[in-house]
Design a protein around this nucleic acid. Structure first.
Lengths: 205, 205
DNA sequence: CAGTGTGAAGATGTTCACAGCG
DNA sequence: CGCTGTGAACATCTTCACACTG
Protein backbone atom coordinates (compact mmCIF):
# COMPACT_ATOMS: atom_id res chain seq x y z
CA UNK A 1 0.00 0.00 0.00
CA UNK A 2 2.78 2.47 -0.91
CA UNK A 3 1.32 5.90 -1.45
CA UNK A 4 3.44 6.30 -4.55
CA UNK A 5 1.58 3.47 -6.27
CA UNK A 6 -1.84 5.09 -5.94
CA UNK A 7 -2.67 7.48 -8.79
CA UNK A 8 -3.25 10.96 -7.46
CA UNK A 9 -6.50 11.12 -9.38
CA UNK A 10 -7.70 8.18 -7.35
CA UNK A 11 -6.72 9.96 -4.13
CA UNK A 12 -8.65 13.02 -5.28
CA UNK A 13 -11.76 10.89 -5.60
CA UNK A 14 -11.49 9.20 -2.21
CA UNK A 15 -13.20 12.07 -0.35
CA UNK A 16 -16.06 11.89 -2.84
CA UNK A 17 -16.50 8.18 -2.25
CA UNK A 18 -16.36 8.72 1.50
CA UNK A 19 -19.00 11.41 1.40
CA UNK A 20 -21.17 9.21 -0.77
CA UNK A 21 -20.93 6.22 1.56
CA UNK A 22 -21.72 8.44 4.55
CA UNK A 23 -24.76 9.83 2.83
CA UNK A 24 -25.96 6.35 1.83
CA UNK A 25 -25.61 5.25 5.43
CA UNK A 26 -27.76 8.18 6.57
CA UNK A 27 -30.32 7.16 3.97
CA UNK A 28 -30.38 3.66 5.42
CA UNK A 29 -28.70 1.99 2.45
CA UNK A 30 -26.39 -0.67 3.81
CA UNK A 31 -25.00 -1.94 0.55
CA UNK A 32 -24.37 -0.30 -2.79
CA UNK A 33 -23.06 -1.47 -6.15
CA UNK A 34 -20.29 0.22 -8.10
CA UNK A 35 -22.89 0.97 -10.74
CA UNK A 36 -25.13 2.88 -8.30
CA UNK A 37 -22.14 4.73 -6.86
CA UNK A 38 -20.91 5.70 -10.28
CA UNK A 39 -24.29 7.18 -11.17
CA UNK A 40 -24.27 9.34 -8.05
CA UNK A 41 -20.78 10.61 -8.73
CA UNK A 42 -20.99 10.93 -12.48
CA UNK A 43 -18.19 8.45 -12.99
CA UNK A 44 -17.76 5.16 -14.74
CA UNK A 45 -18.45 2.05 -12.66
CA UNK A 46 -15.22 0.44 -13.86
CA UNK A 47 -13.32 3.34 -12.41
CA UNK A 48 -15.11 3.12 -9.06
CA UNK A 49 -14.21 -0.55 -8.79
CA UNK A 50 -10.62 0.02 -9.84
CA UNK A 51 -10.20 2.87 -7.37
CA UNK A 52 -11.63 1.00 -4.42
CA UNK A 53 -9.85 -2.24 -5.24
CA UNK A 54 -6.48 -0.51 -5.02
CA UNK A 55 -6.73 -0.52 -1.24
CA UNK A 56 -8.01 -4.05 -0.75
CA UNK A 57 -10.86 -6.36 -1.62
CA UNK A 58 -13.61 -4.36 0.01
CA UNK A 59 -16.53 -5.52 -2.08
CA UNK A 60 -18.64 -8.64 -2.03
CA UNK A 61 -19.13 -10.29 -5.41
CA UNK A 62 -22.74 -10.56 -6.40
CA UNK A 63 -23.70 -7.96 -3.80
CA UNK A 64 -21.66 -4.77 -3.85
CA UNK A 65 -20.02 -2.71 -1.10
CA UNK A 66 -21.12 -2.46 2.52
CA UNK A 67 -21.58 1.25 3.15
CA UNK A 68 -20.63 1.21 6.83
CA UNK A 69 -17.50 -0.84 6.25
CA UNK A 70 -16.37 1.23 3.30
CA UNK A 71 -16.92 4.53 5.09
CA UNK A 72 -14.73 3.23 7.88
CA UNK A 73 -12.05 1.94 5.52
CA UNK A 74 -11.97 5.23 3.62
CA UNK A 75 -11.72 7.26 6.81
CA UNK A 76 -8.73 5.15 7.81
CA UNK A 77 -7.12 5.45 4.38
CA UNK A 78 -7.57 9.23 4.37
CA UNK A 79 -6.51 9.47 8.03
CA UNK A 80 -9.68 11.31 8.93
CA UNK A 81 -10.53 8.86 11.73
CA UNK A 82 -8.59 11.14 14.11
CA UNK A 83 -8.43 14.80 14.96
CA UNK A 84 -6.10 17.12 13.04
CA UNK A 85 -5.25 20.51 14.44
CA UNK A 86 -5.42 23.19 11.78
CA UNK A 87 -3.80 26.63 11.91
CA UNK A 88 -5.06 29.61 9.94
CA UNK A 89 -2.90 32.54 8.92
CA UNK A 90 -4.86 35.69 8.09
CA UNK A 91 -8.33 36.44 9.47
CA UNK A 92 -9.73 38.63 6.74
CA UNK A 93 -12.95 37.73 4.97
CA UNK A 94 -11.70 34.37 3.82
CA UNK A 95 -10.07 33.42 7.12
CA UNK A 96 -13.16 34.46 9.04
CA UNK A 97 -15.44 32.49 6.74
CA UNK A 98 -13.29 29.42 7.25
CA UNK A 99 -13.25 29.80 11.02
CA UNK A 100 -17.02 29.96 11.11
CA UNK A 101 -17.63 27.50 8.27
CA UNK A 102 -20.08 24.85 9.38
CA UNK A 103 -19.07 22.33 6.74
CA UNK A 104 -16.03 21.02 8.65
CA UNK A 105 -16.37 18.17 11.05
CA UNK A 106 -14.63 19.67 14.08
CA UNK A 107 -13.83 16.18 15.31
CA UNK A 108 -11.59 15.78 12.28
CA UNK A 109 -10.35 19.23 11.32
CA UNK A 110 -10.12 21.37 14.40
CA UNK A 111 -9.09 24.96 13.90
CA UNK A 112 -6.86 25.18 16.93
CA UNK A 113 -4.90 28.36 16.26
CA UNK A 114 -5.48 31.48 14.19
CA UNK A 115 -3.15 34.37 13.43
CA UNK A 116 -3.24 37.87 12.07
CA UNK A 117 -0.89 40.82 12.19
CA UNK A 118 -3.63 43.40 12.70
CA UNK A 119 -3.56 44.60 16.37
CA UNK A 120 -7.29 45.25 16.08
CA UNK A 121 -7.92 41.55 15.56
CA UNK A 122 -5.33 40.05 17.90
CA UNK A 123 -7.00 38.91 21.10
CA UNK A 124 -10.48 38.73 19.57
CA UNK A 125 -12.34 35.46 19.74
CA UNK A 126 -13.92 33.84 16.70
CA UNK A 127 -15.89 30.65 17.10
CA UNK A 128 -14.06 29.76 20.31
CA UNK A 129 -10.56 30.49 19.06
CA UNK A 130 -8.54 33.54 20.09
CA UNK A 131 -6.69 35.26 17.27
CA UNK A 132 -3.00 35.48 18.04
CA UNK A 133 -0.15 37.66 16.84
CA UNK A 134 1.32 36.45 13.57
CA UNK A 135 4.79 36.94 15.07
CA UNK A 136 4.05 34.06 17.41
CA UNK A 137 2.97 31.77 14.58
CA UNK A 138 6.03 29.55 14.33
CA UNK A 139 6.38 29.14 18.08
CA UNK A 140 2.68 28.43 18.68
CA UNK A 141 2.29 26.05 15.77
CA UNK A 142 5.25 24.07 17.06
CA UNK A 143 3.91 24.18 20.63
CA UNK A 144 0.50 22.87 19.58
CA UNK A 145 1.92 20.34 17.10
CA UNK A 146 -0.24 21.69 14.32
CA UNK A 147 0.40 19.81 11.10
CA UNK A 148 -2.13 21.38 8.72
CA UNK A 149 -2.17 25.03 7.78
CA UNK A 150 -4.38 27.39 5.81
CA UNK A 151 -3.00 30.52 4.18
CA UNK A 152 -5.64 33.26 3.98
CA UNK A 153 -3.46 36.37 3.92
CA UNK A 154 -3.08 38.73 0.95
CA UNK A 155 -0.83 37.39 -1.82
CA UNK A 156 2.09 39.67 -0.97
CA UNK A 157 2.42 38.10 2.48
CA UNK A 158 1.59 34.52 1.57
CA UNK A 159 5.16 33.32 1.05
CA UNK A 160 6.36 34.78 4.34
CA UNK A 161 3.48 33.33 6.36
CA UNK A 162 3.84 29.96 4.64
CA UNK A 163 7.51 29.86 5.60
CA UNK A 164 6.66 30.60 9.22
CA UNK A 165 4.21 27.74 9.16
CA UNK A 166 6.70 25.34 7.67
CA UNK A 167 9.28 26.40 10.24
CA UNK A 168 6.72 25.52 12.89
CA UNK A 169 6.48 22.00 11.53
CA UNK A 170 3.45 22.21 9.29
CA UNK A 171 3.38 19.44 6.69
CA UNK A 172 0.33 20.25 4.59
CA UNK A 173 -0.84 23.65 3.41
CA UNK A 174 -4.05 24.86 1.81
CA UNK A 175 -3.32 28.16 0.09
CA UNK A 176 -6.17 30.60 -0.55
CA UNK A 177 -3.85 33.40 -1.70
CA UNK A 178 -3.71 33.73 -5.48
CA UNK A 179 0.04 33.33 -5.66
CA UNK A 180 2.58 30.60 -6.22
CA UNK A 181 4.43 29.42 -3.10
CA UNK A 182 7.97 28.16 -3.11
CA UNK A 183 8.33 25.62 -0.31
CA UNK A 184 10.36 22.50 0.49
CA UNK A 185 9.43 19.44 -1.56
CA UNK A 186 8.18 17.51 1.45
CA UNK A 187 5.47 20.06 2.29
CA UNK A 188 2.21 19.11 0.66
CA UNK A 189 0.59 22.11 -0.99
CA UNK A 190 -2.88 22.68 -2.44
CA UNK A 191 -4.22 25.85 -4.00
CA UNK A 192 -7.76 27.18 -3.73
CA UNK A 193 -7.92 29.94 -6.24
CA UNK A 194 -11.48 31.16 -6.94
CA UNK A 195 -10.57 33.51 -9.72
CA UNK A 196 -8.73 30.77 -11.54
CA UNK A 197 -11.87 28.65 -11.50
CA UNK A 198 -14.05 31.48 -12.75
CA UNK A 199 -11.57 32.15 -15.54
CA UNK A 200 -11.60 28.52 -16.55
CA UNK A 201 -15.41 28.61 -16.61
CA UNK A 202 -15.34 31.76 -18.74
CA UNK A 203 -13.10 29.99 -21.24
CA UNK A 204 -15.76 27.41 -21.95
CA UNK A 205 -18.71 29.79 -22.28
CA UNK B 1 -8.94 26.43 -32.45
CA UNK B 2 -11.75 24.07 -31.49
CA UNK B 3 -12.15 23.93 -27.74
CA UNK B 4 -12.45 20.18 -27.91
CA UNK B 5 -8.88 19.89 -29.18
CA UNK B 6 -7.35 21.68 -26.21
CA UNK B 7 -6.57 19.35 -23.28
CA UNK B 8 -8.48 20.40 -20.21
CA UNK B 9 -5.25 20.31 -18.22
CA UNK B 10 -3.90 22.98 -20.52
CA UNK B 11 -7.01 25.10 -19.96
CA UNK B 12 -6.55 24.73 -16.20
CA UNK B 13 -3.08 26.19 -16.51
CA UNK B 14 -4.05 29.18 -18.66
CA UNK B 15 -5.08 31.32 -15.66
CA UNK B 16 -1.71 30.57 -14.07
CA UNK B 17 0.14 31.69 -17.17
CA UNK B 18 -1.99 34.81 -17.38
CA UNK B 19 -1.32 35.75 -13.79
CA UNK B 20 2.38 35.16 -14.31
CA UNK B 21 2.54 37.37 -17.39
CA UNK B 22 0.62 40.10 -15.57
CA UNK B 23 3.00 39.94 -12.64
CA UNK B 24 6.04 40.05 -14.94
CA UNK B 25 4.62 43.10 -16.64
CA UNK B 26 4.22 44.82 -13.27
CA UNK B 27 7.82 43.94 -12.51
CA UNK B 28 8.88 45.58 -15.74
CA UNK B 29 9.89 42.36 -17.52
CA UNK B 30 8.84 42.69 -21.14
CA UNK B 31 9.98 39.30 -22.37
CA UNK B 32 10.29 35.94 -20.70
CA UNK B 33 11.50 32.51 -21.79
CA UNK B 34 9.56 29.30 -21.32
CA UNK B 35 12.37 28.21 -19.02
CA UNK B 36 11.92 31.20 -16.69
CA UNK B 37 8.14 30.80 -16.76
CA UNK B 38 8.39 27.14 -15.94
CA UNK B 39 10.56 27.86 -12.92
CA UNK B 40 8.00 30.33 -11.55
CA UNK B 41 5.15 27.90 -12.00
CA UNK B 42 6.93 24.72 -11.01
CA UNK B 43 6.30 23.17 -14.39
CA UNK B 44 8.44 21.80 -17.16
CA UNK B 45 9.48 24.26 -19.87
CA UNK B 46 8.45 21.83 -22.61
CA UNK B 47 4.96 21.86 -21.22
CA UNK B 48 4.80 25.65 -21.11
CA UNK B 49 5.82 25.84 -24.76
CA UNK B 50 3.41 23.12 -25.80
CA UNK B 51 0.53 24.74 -23.91
CA UNK B 52 1.10 28.20 -25.35
CA UNK B 53 1.76 26.95 -28.87
CA UNK B 54 -1.67 25.31 -29.01
CA UNK B 55 -3.25 28.71 -29.51
CA UNK B 56 -0.82 30.11 -32.06
CA UNK B 57 2.81 30.97 -32.56
CA UNK B 58 3.08 33.52 -29.79
CA UNK B 59 6.78 33.25 -29.06
CA UNK B 60 9.85 34.64 -30.78
CA UNK B 61 12.61 32.11 -31.41
CA UNK B 62 15.84 33.04 -29.74
CA UNK B 63 14.04 35.51 -27.48
CA UNK B 64 10.99 34.16 -25.69
CA UNK B 65 7.50 35.53 -25.13
CA UNK B 66 6.48 39.18 -24.96
CA UNK B 67 4.68 39.57 -21.66
CA UNK B 68 2.28 42.30 -22.72
CA UNK B 69 1.25 40.50 -25.90
CA UNK B 70 0.81 37.17 -24.15
CA UNK B 71 -1.23 38.64 -21.32
CA UNK B 72 -3.53 40.13 -23.94
CA UNK B 73 -3.75 36.90 -25.93
CA UNK B 74 -4.52 34.87 -22.82
CA UNK B 75 -7.20 37.30 -21.69
CA UNK B 76 -8.82 36.93 -25.10
CA UNK B 77 -8.54 33.14 -25.04
CA UNK B 78 -10.04 32.95 -21.56
CA UNK B 79 -12.68 35.57 -22.42
CA UNK B 80 -11.67 37.71 -19.49
CA UNK B 81 -11.18 40.80 -21.63
CA UNK B 82 -14.82 41.68 -20.98
CA UNK B 83 -17.14 41.95 -18.00
CA UNK B 84 -19.05 38.92 -16.78
CA UNK B 85 -21.99 39.36 -14.47
CA UNK B 86 -21.92 36.85 -11.64
CA UNK B 87 -24.84 35.81 -9.46
CA UNK B 88 -24.42 34.38 -5.95
CA UNK B 89 -26.95 32.16 -4.26
CA UNK B 90 -26.66 32.06 -0.48
CA UNK B 91 -25.13 34.86 1.57
CA UNK B 92 -23.88 32.94 4.59
CA UNK B 93 -20.25 33.09 5.61
CA UNK B 94 -18.98 31.83 2.29
CA UNK B 95 -21.26 34.00 0.17
CA UNK B 96 -20.41 37.06 2.22
CA UNK B 97 -16.69 36.40 1.97
CA UNK B 98 -17.02 36.11 -1.80
CA UNK B 99 -19.02 39.32 -2.08
CA UNK B 100 -16.36 41.21 -0.18
CA UNK B 101 -13.37 39.33 -1.57
CA UNK B 102 -10.80 41.75 -2.89
CA UNK B 103 -9.08 39.23 -5.15
CA UNK B 104 -11.58 39.55 -8.01
CA UNK B 105 -11.09 42.09 -10.71
CA UNK B 106 -14.54 43.72 -10.73
CA UNK B 107 -14.00 44.74 -14.33
CA UNK B 108 -14.02 41.06 -15.23
CA UNK B 109 -16.14 39.26 -12.67
CA UNK B 110 -18.81 41.59 -11.41
CA UNK B 111 -21.06 40.28 -8.72
CA UNK B 112 -24.25 41.80 -10.06
CA UNK B 113 -26.91 39.93 -8.12
CA UNK B 114 -27.03 38.08 -4.80
CA UNK B 115 -29.79 36.00 -3.29
CA UNK B 116 -30.79 34.49 0.01
CA UNK B 117 -33.99 33.12 1.44
CA UNK B 118 -33.49 34.63 4.90
CA UNK B 119 -35.87 37.65 5.32
CA UNK B 120 -33.30 39.15 7.70
CA UNK B 121 -30.80 39.40 4.86
CA UNK B 122 -33.06 40.32 1.96
CA UNK B 123 -32.80 44.03 1.25
CA UNK B 124 -29.43 44.41 2.97
CA UNK B 125 -26.56 45.81 0.99
CA UNK B 126 -23.17 44.12 0.82
CA UNK B 127 -20.36 45.79 -1.07
CA UNK B 128 -22.78 47.75 -3.22
CA UNK B 129 -25.12 44.88 -4.04
CA UNK B 130 -28.56 44.48 -2.53
CA UNK B 131 -29.43 40.95 -1.45
CA UNK B 132 -32.62 39.80 -3.13
CA UNK B 133 -35.20 37.14 -2.40
CA UNK B 134 -34.17 33.71 -3.62
CA UNK B 135 -37.67 33.28 -5.04
CA UNK B 136 -36.82 35.96 -7.57
CA UNK B 137 -33.58 34.28 -8.61
CA UNK B 138 -34.62 32.80 -11.94
CA UNK B 139 -36.43 35.94 -13.07
CA UNK B 140 -33.66 38.33 -12.02
CA UNK B 141 -30.84 36.23 -13.44
CA UNK B 142 -32.67 36.12 -16.77
CA UNK B 143 -33.44 39.85 -16.60
CA UNK B 144 -29.79 40.74 -15.95
CA UNK B 145 -28.42 38.19 -18.43
CA UNK B 146 -26.18 36.67 -15.78
CA UNK B 147 -24.21 33.76 -17.22
CA UNK B 148 -22.00 32.78 -14.28
CA UNK B 149 -23.30 31.60 -10.94
CA UNK B 150 -21.90 30.73 -7.54
CA UNK B 151 -23.67 28.31 -5.21
CA UNK B 152 -22.96 29.14 -1.57
CA UNK B 153 -26.05 27.69 0.11
CA UNK B 154 -26.09 24.69 2.46
CA UNK B 155 -25.78 21.35 0.67
CA UNK B 156 -29.42 20.42 1.15
CA UNK B 157 -30.53 23.40 -0.93
CA UNK B 158 -27.76 23.40 -3.51
CA UNK B 159 -29.54 21.33 -6.14
CA UNK B 160 -32.69 23.44 -5.97
CA UNK B 161 -30.83 26.74 -6.18
CA UNK B 162 -28.62 25.44 -9.01
CA UNK B 163 -31.74 24.48 -10.98
CA UNK B 164 -33.18 27.95 -10.51
CA UNK B 165 -29.95 29.41 -11.82
CA UNK B 166 -29.92 27.15 -14.85
CA UNK B 167 -33.54 28.01 -15.56
CA UNK B 168 -32.49 31.65 -15.53
CA UNK B 169 -29.96 30.95 -18.26
CA UNK B 170 -26.76 30.48 -16.28
CA UNK B 171 -24.14 28.53 -18.25
CA UNK B 172 -21.30 28.13 -15.76
CA UNK B 173 -21.54 27.31 -12.05
CA UNK B 174 -19.01 27.36 -9.25
CA UNK B 175 -20.35 25.17 -6.46
CA UNK B 176 -19.15 25.75 -2.89
CA UNK B 177 -21.67 23.35 -1.37
CA UNK B 178 -20.16 19.96 -0.55
CA UNK B 179 -22.63 18.01 -2.63
CA UNK B 180 -22.90 16.58 -6.12
CA UNK B 181 -25.16 18.49 -8.50
CA UNK B 182 -27.15 16.89 -11.27
CA UNK B 183 -27.48 19.40 -14.09
CA UNK B 184 -27.84 19.43 -17.89
CA UNK B 185 -24.69 18.44 -19.77
CA UNK B 186 -24.24 21.86 -21.32
CA UNK B 187 -23.91 23.64 -17.97
CA UNK B 188 -20.25 23.91 -17.00
CA UNK B 189 -19.76 22.96 -13.37
CA UNK B 190 -16.80 23.33 -11.01
CA UNK B 191 -16.63 22.32 -7.37
CA UNK B 192 -14.83 24.15 -4.60
CA UNK B 193 -14.88 21.78 -1.70
CA UNK B 194 -12.54 22.77 1.16
CA UNK B 195 -13.03 19.67 3.21
CA UNK B 196 -12.18 17.48 0.26
CA UNK B 197 -8.86 19.28 -0.10
CA UNK B 198 -8.07 18.96 3.58
CA UNK B 199 -8.90 15.26 3.43
CA UNK B 200 -6.62 14.78 0.47
CA UNK B 201 -3.84 16.58 2.36
CA UNK B 202 -4.43 14.37 5.40
CA UNK B 203 -4.03 11.30 3.21
CA UNK B 204 -0.48 12.25 2.34
CA UNK B 205 0.68 13.14 5.87
C1' DC C 1 22.99 30.57 -31.42
C1' DA C 2 19.34 30.87 -28.07
C1' DG C 3 14.95 29.60 -27.48
C1' DT C 4 10.43 28.28 -29.79
C1' DG C 5 7.42 24.77 -31.89
C1' DT C 6 6.42 19.93 -32.67
C1' DG C 7 6.33 14.87 -33.92
C1' DA C 8 7.50 10.83 -31.40
C1' DA C 9 8.29 8.35 -27.08
C1' DG C 10 6.98 7.70 -22.49
C1' DA C 11 4.00 8.07 -18.37
C1' DT C 12 -0.27 8.31 -16.34
C1' DG C 13 -5.09 7.54 -16.13
C1' DT C 14 -9.53 5.39 -17.91
C1' DT C 15 -12.31 2.00 -20.21
C1' DC C 16 -13.16 -2.50 -21.45
C1' DA C 17 -13.96 -7.52 -21.34
C1' DC C 18 -14.23 -11.11 -18.77
C1' DA C 19 -12.53 -14.44 -15.25
C1' DG C 20 -13.77 -15.73 -10.70
C1' DC C 21 -16.06 -15.64 -6.34
C1' DG C 22 -20.06 -15.39 -3.03
C1' DC D 1 -26.33 -15.56 -11.50
C1' DG D 2 -24.67 -10.84 -10.28
C1' DC D 3 -21.20 -7.95 -9.27
C1' DT D 4 -16.40 -7.42 -8.00
C1' DG D 5 -11.52 -7.36 -9.26
C1' DT D 6 -8.07 -7.05 -12.87
C1' DG D 7 -4.95 -7.61 -17.02
C1' DA D 8 -5.04 -5.66 -21.49
C1' DA D 9 -6.48 -2.03 -24.78
C1' DC D 10 -7.21 2.61 -25.25
C1' DA D 11 -7.07 7.62 -24.33
C1' DT D 12 -5.00 11.50 -22.46
C1' DC D 13 -1.25 14.15 -20.87
C1' DT D 14 3.78 15.07 -20.31
C1' DT D 15 8.50 14.76 -21.57
C1' DC D 16 11.91 14.55 -24.84
C1' DA D 17 14.89 15.46 -28.86
C1' DC D 18 15.68 18.22 -32.29
C1' DA D 19 14.47 20.83 -36.52
C1' DC D 20 13.88 25.53 -37.38
C1' DT D 21 13.93 30.53 -37.19
C1' DG D 22 14.53 35.42 -35.75
Amino acid sequence: MKKRDIPKETVNRLPLYLRCFERLLEEGEYTVTSEALSRRLNLNSYLVRKDLSRFGDFGTRGVGYKTRKLAEKLRAILHVNRKWKVGIGGIGNVGFALMTYSGFDREVFDIAVAFDKDPELIGKEVNGVIIEDEQELTRRVKEESVKLGIIAVPPAEAQKVAEKMVKGGIQGLLNFAPTQLDLPEDVRLTHMFFTKELETLAYYL
